[in-house]
Amino acid sequence: MTTTTLPHCTPGPLHATLLAGSVPLFLGALLSDIAYYQSYQIQWSNFAAWLIAGALLSSGLALLFALANLIRAPRKAGRPLLYVLLLLATWVLGLVNAFEHAKDAWAVMPAGLVLSVVVTVLAMIATWAGLTRLRTEGEA
């Protein structure tokens, strides 16, 4: 019985740390938006804006690592490409969310809350895809 192993493109330690670090930041922003929606205390919206800024930094750097891995990969289709596209969608919608949170007071709602939900789910899916073994040579 012969088994062939396919080369994998998994994130390195720094890449994985940046990738996994964006999830709690986006989740914290979502929870802050929920607290703002329930309490009308403007500080929750400010806190969400800062958490989103940190998450954008973390996911943006993870996106750069993912692009470098995709460029080096022998096969540029399939899951590695899906992972990069998920990260890109997360970052772009996170940026839109940051712009939404730059508005004044209650103008953030409800779009900020909806965007926070979408971006948090996207960040979780991108992290799941990034931390699993990404095949670069054929699908098994």
Rank of each mutant, 00 (worst) to 15 (best):
F99G: 14
G112C: 08
P110H: 03
V118F: 00
V119Q: 07
A111Q: 14
G112Y: 10
M124D: 04
A129L: 12
V118P: 01
A123H: 03
A123N: 02
A102V: 07
N97F: 06
N97W: 07
W106H: 03
M109Q: 15
W106D: 03
V117Q: 04
F99R: 14
V108D: 11
T132V: 07
V108L: 14
M109N: 07
I125W: 01
D104K: 03
K103R: 09
M109E: 15
V119T: 13
W128Q: 09
K103V: 03
G130R: 09
P110K: 00
A102H: 11
M109L: 15
L131E: 05
M109T: 08
S116T: 06
E100F: 02
S116C: 07
D104V: 08
V114Y: 08
M109A: 11
M124S: 14
H101L: 14
T120N: 05
A98N: 11
D104C: 01
L113V: 10
A111T: 12
E100Q: 15
V117P: 03
L115V: 04
D104N: 06
L131M: 13
V117I: 07
L113T: 01
L131P: 06
I125D: 02
H101V: 10
V108A: 11
F99L: 12
S116N: 12
H101A: 14
P110G: 06
L115H: 05
V121E: 01
L131R: 09
L131D: 05
V117S: 00
T127I: 09
V119G: 03
A126H: 05
K103D: 06
N97P: 05
V117T: 04
V119R: 06
H101E: 14
K103H: 05
V108S: 11
D104E: 07
T120C: 02
T127C: 14
L115R: 05
V121Y: 00
V121A: 02
A111R: 15
L115I: 02
A102W: 06
A129K: 12
S116E: 03
A129H: 13
V119W: 00
A98M: 13
A102S: 10
G112K: 08
L122N: 08
L113H: 02
A98V: 08
H101G: 05
I125L: 06
E100S: 12
V121I: 01
V118E: 01
E100P: 07
G112E: 07
L131W: 04
T132F: 02
V117K: 00
A123D: 01
N97E: 15
G130S: 13
V108G: 11
G112Q: 08
A98Y: 14
V117L: 04
A102Q: 14
L122H: 06
A102C: 09
L115C: 04
A107L: 15
N97S: 12
A126S: 11
V114I: 10
L122T: 04
L115M: 04
A123L: 00
L113K: 01
A98G: 12
A105I: 07
N97C: 15
A107Q: 15
W128A: 15
M109I: 13
F99E: 10
L122I: 06
W106N: 03
L113N: 02
L113D: 05
A105S: 14
A126R: 02
W106G: 01
A123I: 07
K103S: 11
T127N: 09
V117A: 04
V121W: 00
V121D: 00
L115G: 01
I125T: 01
E100C: 09
